[in-house]
Write a protein that binds this DNA or RNA. Sequence first.
DNA 1: TCACATTTGTGCGTATGTATG
DNA 2: CCATACATACGCACAAATGTG
Lengths: 248, 248
Amino acid sequence: MTGLASSIERRNGVSLWRQIADKILQGIASGDFAENAALPPEVALAERYGVNRHTVRSAIAALVQEGVLRAEQGRGTFVLSRKRLSYPIGARTRFSTGLQGQTSERHIALLSSSTEPASRRIAEALGIAKGAAVIRLETRGEADGHAVSRATTWFDAKRFAGIEDAMAQTGSITTSLKRFGINDYLRHSTVLSARHADADDLAALDLQPGAIVLVTVAVNVTLDGQPIQFAESRFPAERVELNLSAGD
Amino acid sequence: MTGLASSIERRNGVSLWRQIADKILQGIASGDFAENAALPPEVALAERYGVNRHTVRSAIAALVQEGVLRAEQGRGTFVLSRKRLSYPIGARTRFSTGLQGQTSERHIALLSSSTEPASRRIAEALGIAKGAAVIRLETRGEADGHAVSRATTWFDAKRFAGIEDAMAQTGSITTSLKRFGINDYLRHSTVLSARHADADDLAALDLQPGAIVLVTVAVNVTLDGQPIQFAESRFPAERVELNLSAGD
DNA sequence: TCACATTTGTGCGTATGTATG
DNA sequence: CCATACATACGCACAAATGTG
């Protein structure tokens, strides 16, 4: 009955906190700790495994960092579920159609917008002069009430004046672009990386410190190759995977 | 001169360790702490900022986790540099040619190989019967002496008997496949995710606990669509970005 | 509104283990 | 073997957030 606790060993080359973390993982795998339910309080775990509360906290911190648990001050520590949305990226990358069939509802919320001079990087991507006015949109993609992306996108302000209003109204880039005579566009390039979420990501995507975001930096172009949009999107790695579809 | 330390405040809603971490980031940005050089010892930092050594440790742990620092037991804590290799992924994804121009030398080292029955997932991907024999290769991609990828790949054992020997000799998948009459192949699908590096990744890719790996799960096919290879690759996010090239 | 219990978060002091040179 | 410096673990105290009565 105390088999679990007795299998914790000291000075065997594996730190106690790592052993505790593995115990918790076992507990989740065996159904001892249910998904989407609260873990026992730290003090209870500390007693169960015969270690100090700090040691349990180290284990929990590691698992939070691995995206397995989520700790909430004053409430408890919860076991996360692990299904991921699959977000397709290809020549025709579209937020809404991409998630069709996986969620019942999705839209893009416009958080803020502003006009600013283009940095060198953005000017080059959009094929305009450095310092020319660009519109920046800060958006959050939501599916079934969960935040699944946080993006910053830039448009040439001259060509797309007022696109922020269209976005606010329609909640869709694709629809907004139609108001400017663009009925189709292609993903020209995508650079992909991953990093820990920063403070903004944490707030916008409802993540815990230490969470990982997938970052895409992309340029969309018209069918004849004119760049129209430059975007950096952040996806919570624990909730989203990217699906690099071959053709379309 | 002691302006830095005096700007640390207690009970202002931001934890001390986070404030210290931000101080260290400032120090790096301002050149106070040089890239690729050792940070002052923890006790020195603790004194400089007027906090306990544990608090400095929390700050350092956070920055290690963010990939900014690297702590080495018995030696010191080092500021990392942040250039990344750009690894192209497209229809014709090849390790060696992909990194051409970015490194002077690159190859794939075969760590181990084995034959095993195909799991359901692998059988489906390769279009063979579940339980049929498959060859598994554990490899590490190296460029200029640095580990840049860690992959596990599976081949149908019947069709590609002995491919492990070819890999060991040539250090190239592309070259090895030629021995089996395959002169060209295409990337059929890629699913991309990110997670924290596990123990194996840490060792193989020379990473610190808390580091992030980009994970691709891919299927390669012959020109007429026959699946030949299933692979899961892990890339250290701090050293590699993925470049989703549009056409080729 | 307020008090209170519960639970996680932060900080300090201390001791000991472990890796490096 | 020693000194240095990072790693782990424990005990204690209090702060902060949450939920409840």
